[in-house]
Amino acid sequence: MKLINILSEKKEIVLKKWFDKIAASYPVNAPSFLKNQKNQFANPVGYTIEETIEAVLDVLINEGTDKKAQEFLDRFVQVRAVQDFTPSRAVDFLFMLKQLMKDELKDELQEKGMYEEFLLMESRIDRMVLASFESYLKYREKIYELRVNEFKNMAFRLLERANLTFEFKDDDPAFEKDVSDSDNVK
């Protein structure tokens, strides 16, 4: 039997335990809410966790592309990036899966050839961790970009509205001249 088949058989239990582990990374009171409120709009974080871990496991079991998993991981990391986590904690949820597989598949991993399969799968999960870290950084940078943009927009608009700036308009005659000049060059 192949590792992916075993994982497929144990999918439900792995998903449940993985969800619980991720939920437990949030402060007291939050885990039960994340777990029990099933409405996707009343509990968007819980819903995102569920969606993400299912997608990751599906990709591993069905040997789907990493890209598909990354789409979901990106969405979840987008959430973790604005929550109260350190960078390492924000992306550590994939390590939880590795540990969980070691615990849940302890006996199976002793079987012939199985550990090699596990190592391959582990490498794949590691690649997902790296991709998640890229996402994390992307969103943290986005936060600072948004800060700067808000500030710049306000300052610029104020100057503009107070008639303290001059801006070229698209239909400025100067542009027409430039265009004809460049045409001549051609």
Binding site: P27, L34, V82, Q83
Partner: peptide, 17 residues
Amino acid sequence: CADKCHFFIGGGDPKNM
């Protein structure tokens, strides 16, 4: 009221309940 605050829903900090 506990799970109705957007800050609790989005972040999970119990003191935002």
